[in-house]
Design a protein around this nucleic acid. Sequence first.
DNA 1: AGTACATAACTGACTGGTCAGTTATTTGAA
DNA 2: TTCAAATAACTGACCAGTCAGTTATGTACT
Lengths: 221, 221
Amino acid sequence: MEQRRAIRIPKFRRRAEARPDEVLDAALDLFIEKGFAATRVEDIARRAGLSKGAVYLYFPSKEAILEGLVRRAIVPIATQALSSAENYEGDPRLVITMVLKMLAAKLNDPRLLAIPKLIVREVPGFPELAAMYRREVLDKVMPVIEKLIRNGIDQGYLRPVDPHLTIRSIVGPVMLHVAMAEIFGITPPDGFAIDRLIDNHLTILFDGLSAPDGAKRWTSS
Amino acid sequence: MEQRRAIRIPKFRRRAEARPDEVLDAALDLFIEKGFAATRVEDIARRAGLSKGAVYLYFPSKEAILEGLVRRAIVPIATQALSSAENYEGDPRLVITMVLKMLAAKLNDPRLLAIPKLIVREVPGFPELAAMYRREVLDKVMPVIEKLIRNGIDQGYLRPVDPHLTIRSIVGPVMLHVAMAEIFGITPPDGFAIDRLIDNHLTILFDGLSAPDGAKRWTSS
DNA sequence: AGTACATAACTGACTGGTCAGTTATTTGAA
DNA sequence: TTCAAATAACTGACCAGTCAGTTATGTACT
Protein backbone atom coordinates (compact mmCIF):
# COMPACT_ATOMS: atom_id res chain seq x y z
CA MET A 1 0.00 0.00 0.00
CA GLU A 2 2.11 2.75 1.28
CA GLN A 3 5.74 2.54 0.85
CA ARG A 4 6.78 6.03 1.27
CA ARG A 5 10.31 5.96 -0.02
CA ALA A 6 12.98 3.47 -0.74
CA ILE A 7 12.67 0.99 2.09
CA ARG A 8 9.68 -1.26 2.36
CA ILE A 9 8.84 -3.29 5.36
CA PRO A 10 7.81 -6.70 4.19
CA LYS A 11 4.77 -7.85 6.04
CA PHE A 12 5.19 -11.52 5.43
CA ARG A 13 8.50 -13.18 5.14
CA ARG A 14 8.35 -16.55 3.56
CA ARG A 15 10.64 -19.16 4.95
CA ALA A 16 10.67 -17.24 8.14
CA GLU A 17 13.27 -19.17 10.04
CA ALA A 18 14.08 -16.14 12.13
CA ARG A 19 10.64 -16.04 13.68
CA PRO A 20 11.11 -18.50 16.54
CA ASP A 21 14.14 -16.59 17.73
CA GLU A 22 12.24 -13.33 17.58
CA VAL A 23 9.45 -14.81 19.63
CA LEU A 24 11.98 -16.08 22.14
CA ASP A 25 13.62 -12.66 22.40
CA ALA A 26 10.29 -10.99 23.01
CA ALA A 27 9.29 -13.62 25.54
CA LEU A 28 12.53 -13.22 27.47
CA ASP A 29 12.02 -9.46 27.72
CA LEU A 30 8.55 -9.92 29.11
CA PHE A 31 9.38 -12.83 31.40
CA ILE A 32 12.15 -10.71 32.93
CA GLU A 33 9.74 -7.86 33.38
CA LYS A 34 6.70 -9.62 34.75
CA GLY A 35 7.44 -13.29 35.18
CA PHE A 36 6.06 -16.22 33.24
CA ALA A 37 2.56 -16.43 34.64
CA ALA A 38 1.83 -12.73 34.31
CA THR A 39 2.80 -12.35 30.67
CA ARG A 40 0.14 -13.13 28.14
CA VAL A 41 0.96 -14.92 24.94
CA GLU A 42 -0.61 -12.03 23.10
CA ASP A 43 1.91 -9.65 24.67
CA ILE A 44 4.75 -11.81 23.44
CA ALA A 45 3.22 -11.85 19.99
CA ARG A 46 2.77 -8.08 19.95
CA ARG A 47 6.36 -7.44 20.91
CA ALA A 48 7.62 -9.87 18.31
CA GLY A 49 5.50 -8.06 15.74
CA LEU A 50 3.08 -10.93 15.24
CA SER A 51 -0.40 -11.93 16.12
CA LYS A 52 -1.13 -14.40 18.83
CA GLY A 53 -2.14 -17.06 16.38
CA ALA A 54 1.19 -16.87 14.60
CA VAL A 55 3.04 -17.66 17.80
CA TYR A 56 1.20 -20.94 17.90
CA LEU A 57 2.52 -21.73 14.45
CA TYR A 58 5.98 -21.88 15.97
CA PHE A 59 5.38 -23.08 19.51
CA PRO A 60 2.75 -25.55 20.62
CA SER A 61 2.18 -23.91 24.01
CA LYS A 62 3.25 -21.14 26.30
CA GLU A 63 5.37 -23.57 28.27
CA ALA A 64 7.15 -24.62 25.12
CA ILE A 65 8.23 -21.01 24.68
CA LEU A 66 9.77 -21.02 28.13
CA GLU A 67 11.46 -24.31 27.49
CA GLY A 68 12.86 -23.13 24.18
CA LEU A 69 14.12 -19.99 25.83
CA VAL A 70 15.99 -21.84 28.51
CA ARG A 71 17.47 -24.34 26.13
CA ARG A 72 18.71 -21.66 23.77
CA ALA A 73 20.44 -19.73 26.56
CA ILE A 74 21.84 -22.66 28.45
CA VAL A 75 23.52 -24.99 26.07
CA PRO A 76 26.26 -22.70 24.73
CA ILE A 77 27.28 -21.64 28.23
CA ALA A 78 27.52 -25.17 29.52
CA THR A 79 29.72 -26.23 26.64
CA GLN A 80 31.94 -23.20 27.10
CA ALA A 81 32.42 -23.83 30.81
CA LEU A 82 33.11 -27.45 30.04
CA SER A 83 35.85 -26.71 27.55
CA SER A 84 37.73 -24.61 30.12
CA ALA A 85 37.89 -27.31 32.71
CA GLU A 86 37.94 -30.57 30.84
CA ASN A 87 41.22 -32.45 30.55
CA TYR A 88 42.98 -29.88 32.64
CA GLU A 89 45.97 -31.15 34.60
CA GLY A 90 47.60 -28.73 36.98
CA ASP A 91 46.79 -26.50 39.90
CA PRO A 92 43.01 -26.70 40.06
CA ARG A 93 42.92 -23.39 41.87
CA LEU A 94 43.73 -21.65 38.63
CA VAL A 95 40.78 -23.23 36.84
CA ILE A 96 38.45 -22.61 39.74
CA THR A 97 39.44 -18.96 39.72
CA MET A 98 38.94 -18.71 36.00
CA VAL A 99 35.60 -20.46 35.99
CA LEU A 100 34.26 -18.35 38.83
CA LYS A 101 35.32 -15.15 37.12
CA MET A 102 33.74 -16.28 33.93
CA LEU A 103 30.57 -17.17 35.78
CA ALA A 104 30.52 -13.76 37.43
CA ALA A 105 30.86 -12.05 34.09
CA LYS A 106 27.92 -14.02 32.74
CA LEU A 107 25.79 -13.18 35.72
CA ASN A 108 26.34 -9.50 35.09
CA ASP A 109 24.22 -9.78 31.97
CA PRO A 110 20.56 -9.47 33.00
CA ARG A 111 19.35 -11.48 30.05
CA LEU A 112 21.45 -14.41 31.15
CA LEU A 113 20.75 -13.98 34.81
CA ALA A 114 17.07 -14.12 33.99
CA ILE A 115 17.32 -17.76 32.97
CA PRO A 116 18.19 -19.30 36.35
CA LYS A 117 15.71 -16.93 37.93
CA LEU A 118 12.98 -18.21 35.65
CA ILE A 119 13.93 -21.79 36.38
CA VAL A 120 13.85 -21.31 40.13
CA ARG A 121 10.54 -19.54 39.91
CA GLU A 122 8.71 -21.84 37.57
CA VAL A 123 9.92 -25.23 38.73
CA PRO A 124 6.96 -26.07 40.96
CA GLY A 125 4.50 -25.72 38.10
CA PHE A 126 6.78 -27.03 35.41
CA PRO A 127 9.08 -29.79 36.63
CA GLU A 128 10.30 -30.76 33.16
CA LEU A 129 12.14 -27.45 33.10
CA ALA A 130 14.29 -28.39 36.04
CA ALA A 131 14.79 -31.84 34.60
CA MET A 132 16.00 -30.35 31.35
CA TYR A 133 18.39 -27.96 33.05
CA ARG A 134 19.75 -30.77 35.11
CA ARG A 135 20.21 -33.03 32.12
CA GLU A 136 21.72 -30.42 29.81
CA VAL A 137 23.87 -28.53 32.28
CA LEU A 138 24.40 -29.90 35.74
CA ASP A 139 24.88 -33.54 34.83
CA LYS A 140 27.58 -32.45 32.41
CA VAL A 141 29.32 -29.75 34.40
CA MET A 142 29.35 -31.17 37.88
CA PRO A 143 31.25 -34.38 37.14
CA VAL A 144 33.97 -32.32 35.48
CA ILE A 145 34.41 -30.10 38.51
CA GLU A 146 34.32 -33.11 40.76
CA LYS A 147 37.09 -34.74 38.79
CA LEU A 148 39.06 -31.52 38.89
CA ILE A 149 38.91 -31.51 42.66
CA ARG A 150 39.75 -35.17 42.90
CA ASN A 151 42.81 -34.70 40.71
CA GLY A 152 43.81 -31.68 42.79
CA ILE A 153 43.72 -33.80 45.91
CA ASP A 154 45.65 -36.67 44.32
CA GLN A 155 48.34 -34.31 43.11
CA GLY A 156 48.72 -32.68 46.49
CA TYR A 157 47.30 -29.29 45.61
CA LEU A 158 44.24 -29.65 47.78
CA ARG A 159 43.45 -31.11 51.15
CA PRO A 160 41.40 -34.28 51.21
CA VAL A 161 37.81 -33.08 51.08
CA ASP A 162 34.63 -34.57 49.69
CA PRO A 163 34.69 -33.56 46.03
CA HIS A 164 30.95 -33.71 45.57
CA LEU A 165 30.13 -31.60 48.58
CA THR A 166 32.96 -29.18 47.91
CA ILE A 167 31.28 -27.99 44.74
CA ARG A 168 28.82 -26.21 47.01
CA SER A 169 31.63 -24.49 48.86
CA ILE A 170 33.04 -23.21 45.60
CA VAL A 171 29.90 -21.99 43.90
CA GLY A 172 27.53 -21.32 46.80
CA PRO A 173 28.90 -17.95 47.90
CA VAL A 174 28.68 -16.54 44.40
CA MET A 175 25.13 -17.77 44.01
CA LEU A 176 24.09 -16.34 47.33
CA HIS A 177 25.64 -13.01 46.46
CA VAL A 178 23.61 -12.85 43.27
CA ALA A 179 20.44 -14.04 44.95
CA MET A 180 20.69 -11.49 47.74
CA ALA A 181 21.23 -8.67 45.29
CA GLU A 182 18.43 -9.80 43.01
CA ILE A 183 15.77 -10.76 45.48
CA PHE A 184 16.36 -8.39 48.36
CA GLY A 185 18.49 -5.71 46.82
CA ILE A 186 21.19 -6.35 49.38
CA THR A 187 24.62 -5.38 48.09
CA PRO A 188 27.82 -4.06 49.63
CA PRO A 189 27.85 -0.28 50.10
CA ASP A 190 29.79 0.16 46.88
CA GLY A 191 27.38 -1.67 44.62
CA PHE A 192 27.19 -5.17 43.24
CA ALA A 193 30.97 -5.62 43.58
CA ILE A 194 31.06 -9.16 42.26
CA ASP A 195 34.79 -8.96 41.62
CA ARG A 196 35.54 -8.00 45.20
CA LEU A 197 33.24 -10.77 46.33
CA ILE A 198 35.13 -13.32 44.30
CA ASP A 199 38.49 -12.16 45.61
CA ASN A 200 37.25 -12.34 49.17
CA HIS A 201 35.66 -15.71 48.52
CA LEU A 202 38.74 -17.24 46.88
CA THR A 203 40.97 -16.12 49.71
CA ILE A 204 38.75 -17.88 52.20
CA LEU A 205 38.13 -20.86 49.98
CA PHE A 206 41.78 -21.61 49.43
CA ASP A 207 43.44 -20.42 52.62
CA GLY A 208 40.63 -20.49 55.15
CA LEU A 209 39.13 -18.01 57.50
CA SER A 210 41.25 -18.90 60.51
CA ALA A 211 44.16 -16.69 61.45
CA PRO A 212 47.42 -18.59 60.99
CA ASP A 213 48.88 -17.66 64.38
CA GLY A 214 47.63 -19.22 67.54
CA ALA A 215 44.63 -20.85 65.91
CA LYS A 216 44.74 -24.57 66.08
CA ARG A 217 43.46 -26.46 63.11
CA TRP A 218 39.73 -26.66 63.18
CA THR A 219 38.04 -29.96 63.91
CA SER A 220 34.32 -30.24 63.60
CA SER A 221 31.94 -31.76 66.12
CA MET B 1 -11.44 -37.94 63.80
CA GLU B 2 -15.19 -37.80 63.77
CA GLN B 3 -16.96 -38.20 66.98
CA ARG B 4 -20.09 -40.17 66.88
CA ARG B 5 -21.38 -39.76 70.38
CA ALA B 6 -21.15 -37.40 73.20
CA ILE B 7 -19.12 -34.56 71.93
CA ARG B 8 -20.53 -32.50 69.14
CA ILE B 9 -18.53 -30.53 66.71
CA PRO B 10 -19.79 -27.01 66.85
CA LYS B 11 -20.31 -25.73 63.39
CA PHE B 12 -19.95 -22.11 64.20
CA ARG B 13 -17.64 -20.83 66.79
CA ARG B 14 -18.29 -17.29 67.73
CA ARG B 15 -15.29 -15.17 68.53
CA ALA B 16 -13.21 -17.54 66.55
CA GLU B 17 -9.76 -16.22 67.26
CA ALA B 18 -8.21 -19.50 66.17
CA ARG B 19 -9.53 -19.12 62.66
CA PRO B 20 -6.78 -17.03 61.08
CA ASP B 21 -4.16 -19.51 62.20
CA GLU B 22 -6.15 -22.39 60.81
CA VAL B 23 -6.44 -20.65 57.49
CA LEU B 24 -2.70 -20.02 57.51
CA ASP B 25 -1.97 -23.67 58.25
CA ALA B 26 -4.18 -24.79 55.42
CA ALA B 27 -2.70 -22.24 53.07
CA LEU B 28 0.84 -23.32 53.88
CA ASP B 29 0.03 -26.95 53.16
CA LEU B 30 -1.38 -26.05 49.79
CA PHE B 31 1.28 -23.54 48.86
CA ILE B 32 3.92 -26.18 49.55
CA GLU B 33 2.04 -28.63 47.42
CA LYS B 34 1.15 -26.51 44.43
CA GLY B 35 2.61 -23.04 44.81
CA PHE B 36 0.81 -19.80 45.43
CA ALA B 37 -0.66 -19.12 42.01
CA ALA B 38 -2.03 -22.62 41.54
CA THR B 39 -3.89 -22.89 44.82
CA ARG B 40 -7.39 -21.48 44.88
CA VAL B 41 -8.75 -19.59 47.80
CA GLU B 42 -11.60 -22.06 47.88
CA ASP B 43 -9.13 -24.93 48.39
CA ILE B 44 -7.63 -23.13 51.34
CA ALA B 45 -11.09 -22.58 52.77
CA ARG B 46 -12.09 -26.21 52.29
CA ARG B 47 -9.00 -27.50 54.05
CA ALA B 48 -9.50 -25.09 56.91
CA GLY B 49 -13.09 -26.31 57.18
CA LEU B 50 -14.61 -23.06 56.00
CA SER B 51 -16.27 -21.59 53.01
CA LYS B 52 -14.48 -19.26 50.69
CA GLY B 53 -16.45 -16.28 51.88
CA ALA B 54 -15.39 -16.89 55.46
CA VAL B 55 -11.75 -16.64 54.53
CA TYR B 56 -12.45 -13.12 53.38
CA LEU B 57 -13.74 -12.30 56.84
CA TYR B 58 -10.21 -12.80 58.12
CA PHE B 59 -8.01 -11.83 55.20
CA PRO B 60 -8.65 -9.04 52.74
CA SER B 61 -6.99 -10.82 49.84
CA LYS B 62 -5.12 -13.91 48.76
CA GLU B 63 -1.85 -12.01 48.95
CA ALA B 64 -2.61 -11.04 52.53
CA ILE B 65 -2.75 -14.74 53.37
CA LEU B 66 0.71 -15.24 51.94
CA GLU B 67 2.05 -12.25 53.78
CA GLY B 68 0.54 -13.41 57.06
CA LEU B 69 2.01 -16.82 56.53
CA VAL B 70 5.50 -15.55 56.00
CA ARG B 71 5.35 -13.16 58.91
CA ARG B 72 4.13 -15.83 61.30
CA ALA B 73 6.89 -18.26 60.32
CA ILE B 74 9.70 -15.80 60.12
CA VAL B 75 9.72 -13.68 63.18
CA PRO B 76 10.31 -16.35 65.85
CA ILE B 77 13.21 -17.85 63.91
CA ALA B 78 14.95 -14.56 63.42
CA THR B 79 14.76 -13.73 67.10
CA GLN B 80 16.04 -17.17 68.02
CA ALA B 81 19.03 -16.92 65.72
CA LEU B 82 19.68 -13.47 67.06
CA SER B 83 19.79 -14.52 70.67
CA SER B 84 22.46 -17.14 69.91
CA ALA B 85 24.86 -14.72 68.37
CA GLU B 86 24.24 -11.40 70.00
CA ASN B 87 26.69 -10.17 72.60
CA TYR B 88 28.88 -13.16 72.10
CA GLU B 89 32.58 -12.62 72.84
CA GLY B 90 34.91 -15.46 72.05
CA ASP B 91 35.94 -17.71 69.23
CA PRO B 92 33.42 -16.83 66.52
CA ARG B 93 33.99 -20.18 64.89
CA LEU B 94 32.01 -21.78 67.67
CA VAL B 95 29.02 -19.55 67.05
CA ILE B 96 29.25 -19.93 63.30
CA THR B 97 29.25 -23.69 63.72
CA MET B 98 26.29 -23.54 66.04
CA VAL B 99 24.26 -21.20 63.88
CA LEU B 100 24.87 -23.23 60.74
CA LYS B 101 23.83 -26.44 62.48
CA MET B 102 20.75 -24.75 63.80
CA LEU B 103 19.98 -23.44 60.33
CA ALA B 104 20.43 -26.88 58.85
CA ALA B 105 18.04 -28.35 61.38
CA LYS B 106 15.43 -25.75 60.49
CA LEU B 107 15.82 -26.41 56.79
CA ASN B 108 15.07 -30.06 57.37
CA ASP B 109 11.51 -29.13 58.23
CA PRO B 110 9.56 -28.84 54.97
CA ARG B 111 7.09 -26.42 56.50
CA LEU B 112 9.87 -24.01 57.32
CA LEU B 113 11.80 -24.55 54.13
CA ALA B 114 8.65 -23.70 52.25
CA ILE B 115 8.81 -20.10 53.40
CA PRO B 116 11.97 -19.01 51.62
CA LYS B 117 10.87 -21.02 48.62
CA LEU B 118 7.62 -19.11 48.50
CA ILE B 119 9.43 -15.82 48.81
CA VAL B 120 11.83 -16.59 46.00
CA ARG B 121 9.02 -17.73 43.81
CA GLU B 122 6.57 -14.93 44.39
CA VAL B 123 8.85 -11.93 44.58
CA PRO B 124 8.34 -10.69 41.01
CA GLY B 125 4.62 -10.40 41.44
CA PHE B 126 4.68 -9.35 45.07
CA PRO B 127 7.71 -7.23 45.97
CA GLU B 128 6.40 -6.20 49.38
CA LEU B 129 6.99 -9.79 50.44
CA ALA B 130 10.72 -9.54 49.85
CA ALA B 131 10.76 -6.12 51.48
CA MET B 132 9.10 -7.52 54.57
CA TYR B 133 11.47 -10.46 54.81
CA ARG B 134 14.39 -8.15 54.44
CA ARG B 135 13.10 -5.76 57.10
CA GLU B 136 12.10 -8.41 59.61
CA VAL B 137 14.93 -10.87 59.15
CA LEU B 138 17.92 -9.92 57.11
CA ASP B 139 18.35 -6.38 58.37
CA LYS B 140 18.38 -7.77 61.88
CA VAL B 141 20.46 -10.89 61.45
CA MET B 142 23.13 -9.74 59.05
CA PRO B 143 24.57 -6.92 61.13
CA VAL B 144 24.96 -9.31 64.05
CA ILE B 145 26.94 -11.79 61.99
CA GLU B 146 28.97 -8.99 60.52
CA LYS B 147 29.88 -7.75 63.96
CA LEU B 148 30.74 -11.28 65.01
CA ILE B 149 33.20 -11.55 62.16
CA ARG B 150 34.64 -8.12 62.86
CA ASN B 151 35.21 -9.03 66.50
CA GLY B 152 36.79 -12.31 65.44
CA ILE B 153 39.25 -10.42 63.28
CA ASP B 154 40.03 -7.86 65.97
CA GLN B 155 40.67 -10.58 68.52
CA GLY B 156 42.97 -12.51 66.20
CA TYR B 157 40.74 -15.49 65.62
CA LEU B 158 40.15 -14.74 61.96
CA ARG B 159 42.17 -13.41 59.12
CA PRO B 160 41.36 -9.91 57.88
CA VAL B 161 38.52 -10.41 55.44
CA ASP B 162 35.60 -8.26 54.37
CA PRO B 163 32.95 -8.98 57.01
CA HIS B 164 30.01 -8.11 54.80
CA LEU B 165 31.12 -10.26 51.88
CA THR B 166 32.20 -13.09 54.12
CA ILE B 167 28.62 -13.72 55.17
CA ARG B 168 28.11 -15.17 51.71
CA SER B 169 31.05 -17.51 52.17
CA ILE B 170 29.57 -18.77 55.40
CA VAL B 171 25.97 -19.29 54.40
CA GLY B 172 26.17 -19.71 50.63
CA PRO B 173 27.26 -23.35 50.51
CA VAL B 174 24.45 -24.42 52.81
CA MET B 175 21.90 -22.54 50.76
CA LEU B 176 23.17 -23.99 47.53
CA HIS B 177 23.06 -27.47 49.00
CA VAL B 178 19.43 -27.03 49.90
CA ALA B 179 18.57 -25.40 46.59
CA MET B 180 20.18 -28.16 44.56
CA ALA B 181 18.36 -30.83 46.49
CA GLU B 182 15.03 -29.03 46.31
CA ILE B 183 15.05 -27.81 42.75
CA PHE B 184 16.99 -30.43 40.88
CA GLY B 185 16.93 -33.35 43.25
CA ILE B 186 20.71 -33.43 43.32
CA THR B 187 22.06 -34.90 46.55
CA PRO B 188 25.11 -36.90 47.52
CA PRO B 189 24.77 -40.64 46.93
CA ASP B 190 23.85 -41.20 50.56
CA GLY B 191 20.94 -38.79 50.66
CA PHE B 192 20.50 -35.23 51.80
CA ALA B 193 23.50 -35.49 54.17
CA ILE B 194 23.30 -31.95 55.45
CA ASP B 195 25.47 -32.79 58.43
CA ARG B 196 28.25 -34.12 56.29
CA LEU B 197 27.92 -31.07 54.10
CA ILE B 198 28.33 -28.76 57.04
CA ASP B 199 31.39 -30.62 58.32
CA ASN B 200 33.00 -30.48 54.90
CA HIS B 201 32.05 -26.85 54.53
CA LEU B 202 33.39 -25.79 57.92
CA THR B 203 36.69 -27.51 57.31
CA ILE B 204 37.17 -25.55 54.12
CA LEU B 205 35.74 -22.36 55.54
CA PHE B 206 38.10 -22.26 58.50
CA ASP B 207 41.22 -24.00 57.21
CA GLY B 208 40.97 -23.58 53.46
CA LEU B 209 41.05 -25.91 50.55
CA SER B 210 44.78 -25.65 49.90
CA ALA B 211 47.07 -28.42 51.04
CA PRO B 212 49.43 -27.15 53.74
CA ASP B 213 52.57 -28.61 52.22
CA GLY B 214 54.20 -27.08 49.21
CA ALA B 215 51.25 -24.86 48.42
CA LYS B 216 52.10 -21.22 48.66
CA ARG B 217 49.50 -18.95 50.12
CA TRP B 218 46.97 -18.06 47.51
CA THR B 219 46.90 -14.54 46.11
CA SER B 220 44.15 -13.55 43.78
CA SER B 221 44.73 -11.85 40.46
C1' DA C 1 3.83 -9.36 -19.74
C1' DG C 2 -0.25 -10.74 -17.72
C1' DT C 3 -3.41 -13.93 -15.52
C1' DA C 4 -4.78 -17.69 -12.66
C1' DC C 5 -4.09 -20.82 -9.33
C1' DA C 6 -1.56 -22.57 -5.15
C1' DT C 7 0.06 -22.23 -0.75
C1' DA C 8 2.68 -20.28 3.07
C1' DA C 9 2.28 -16.69 6.55
C1' DC C 10 -0.53 -14.47 9.28
C1' DT C 11 -4.80 -12.53 11.69
C1' DG C 12 -8.19 -11.69 15.36
C1' DA C 13 -12.60 -12.94 16.99
C1' DC C 14 -14.22 -16.56 19.72
C1' DT C 15 -14.61 -20.44 23.17
C1' DG C 16 -14.35 -22.67 27.28
C1' DG C 17 -12.79 -22.67 31.57
C1' DT C 18 -10.83 -20.67 35.73
C1' DC C 19 -10.98 -18.06 39.79
C1' DA C 20 -10.61 -13.75 42.99
C1' DG C 21 -13.61 -11.31 45.29
C1' DT C 22 -18.85 -9.90 46.48
C1' DT C 23 -23.41 -10.33 48.30
C1' DA C 24 -27.94 -11.96 49.62
C1' DT C 25 -29.28 -15.32 52.66
C1' DT C 26 -29.13 -18.71 56.45
C1' DT C 27 -27.53 -20.49 60.88
C1' DG C 28 -27.02 -20.80 65.70
C1' DA C 29 -25.13 -18.91 70.05
C1' DA C 30 -26.49 -15.84 73.70
C1' DT D 1 -35.02 -12.08 69.29
C1' DT D 2 -30.86 -10.49 67.81
C1' DC D 3 -26.80 -10.38 65.11
C1' DA D 4 -22.11 -12.03 64.32
C1' DA D 5 -20.50 -15.90 61.79
C1' DA D 6 -20.71 -18.39 57.91
C1' DT D 7 -22.46 -19.87 53.51
C1' DA D 8 -23.27 -20.63 48.50
C1' DA D 9 -24.48 -18.74 44.57
C1' DC D 10 -23.02 -15.22 41.72
C1' DT D 11 -20.21 -11.69 38.94
C1' DG D 12 -16.77 -9.96 36.22
C1' DA D 13 -12.39 -10.26 34.38
C1' DC D 14 -8.91 -12.81 32.49
C1' DC D 15 -6.54 -15.65 29.16
C1' DA D 16 -4.62 -20.04 26.71
C1' DG D 17 -5.52 -22.07 22.82
C1' DT D 18 -8.46 -22.61 18.26
C1' DC D 19 -9.92 -21.82 13.72
C1' DA D 20 -12.23 -19.79 9.77
C1' DG D 21 -10.83 -16.47 7.04
C1' DT D 22 -7.30 -12.92 4.84
C1' DT D 23 -3.12 -11.40 2.64
C1' DA D 24 1.35 -11.83 0.67
C1' DT D 25 4.30 -14.50 -2.11
C1' DG D 26 5.54 -18.17 -5.45
C1' DT D 27 4.78 -20.66 -9.73
C1' DA D 28 2.93 -22.16 -14.15
C1' DC D 29 0.81 -21.39 -18.11
C1' DT D 30 -0.29 -18.31 -22.06
